[in-house]
């Protein structure tokens, strides 16, 4: 009996494999492109050429060799700009998501496990924080702090730590009620070490899932901020600013908008899929 219930989810995991490997493939590709951008990008992403403006992508008529995904209205190479854009997208997403994760998870763990006064203060703060509309909040923050990489990262952390705090608090509460926590306490463990060595490993799969999801969200937020011209300085190519620029030319140069949009979409989707996949991989109970 026990054996059949054990094997059932395992075989289902095999069916999910593609849903894990495809997103992973995309993210790895993106990371490689970002790291090796100067060598991989076929052109200088900033070089303008007014004779080559609005070239269509390679599969259409009237292209120039070497401009695979066409050029924008200033004659800059779309593919090269996208590759450099991946750099910024990934830097923002990894840094912001990691900081958000650490900040929010620590608060969630403390609130869920220590309860009492800690929980009251942290939960109130989360409630108040969440009553601000997030995007407006981000735009306001960047407007106040000024544009730049660190403002964008700070904005993401400040908007989204509540997601971690809330979810991890709830999971910690569930774990803290389990008898194994009592057993650890009777076994002489201090409260803080019980939290770190007994409870944390049990909420870690959720933390990892949230972290990868957050990476996708950070990419979107960065794109939104670029879109409204509040992100990194407008010279650096970002997917959001490319989409914003492409918007004006959508009827006669749709590729300027479409390719960065697809990259954005695939990236966000991949991160959220990876989150689910990682959760299953890291959880011995689900495996």
């Amino acid at each position: 009996m026990a054996d059949t219930t054990l094997t059932a989810p395992r075989s289902r995991n095999r069916g999910l494999n593609l849903r894990f490997w495809l997103p992973l493939f995309w993210v790895v590709l993106l990371i490689l492109a970002a790291v090796f951008a100067p060598w991989v990008a076929p052109r200088d992403p900033l070089a303008q050429d007014l004779f080559l403006e609005r070239l269509p992508p390679f599969f259409m008529k009237g292209t120039e060799p070497g401009y695979w995904l066409g050029t924008d209205s200033l004659g800059r190479d779309v593919l090269s700009r996208m590759i450099y854009g991946a750099r910024i997208a990934l830097i923002v997403s990894f840094t912001a998501a990691t900081l958000t994760c650490i900040f929010g998870s620590v608060l969630g763990l403390v609130a869920g496990y220590f309860g009492g006064w800690w929980d009251t203060v942290i939960s109130r703060l989360v409630d108040i924080w969440m009553s601000f509309p997030p995007v407006l909040f981000a735009v306001l923050l960047v407007a106040v702090m000024g544009t730049g990489l660190w403002s964008v990262i700070a904005a993401i952390v400040l908007i989204d730590w509540t997601r971690f705090a809330r979810v991890i608090r709830a999971e910690t509460l569930v774990q803290a009620r389990m008898d194994y926590v009592d057993s650890a306490r009777i076994g002489g463990a201090r409260r803080i070490s019980t939290l770190v060595s007994e409870i944390l490993p049990n909420v870690l799969p959720s933390i990892i899932a949230l972290l990868t999801l957050e990476m996708g969200i950070a990419v979107i937020v960065e794109a939104i901020l670029s879109f409204v011209n509040l992100s990194i300085s407008s010279d650096d190519p970002t997917w959001g600013s490319m989409i914003a620029e492409g918007r004006g030319a959508i009827y006669f140069a749709w590729w300027v908008l479409l390719f960065p949009l697809i990259a954005l979409f695939l990236t966000v989707l991949s991160f959220s899929q990876l989150g689910e996949g990682m959760k299953q991989r890291f959880d011995p109970v689900l495996q």
């Binding site: 194994y180 009777i186 007994e198």
Partner: peptide, 18 residues
């Protein structure tokens, strides 16, 4: 912890799953 120990009620939750 040196003198006493516990046999808990619910064997499902009394061992740390990870």
């Amino acid at each position: 912890s040196k003198i006493a120990s516990l046999i808990p009620q619910d064997p499902l939750t009394a061992l740390n799953p990870v």
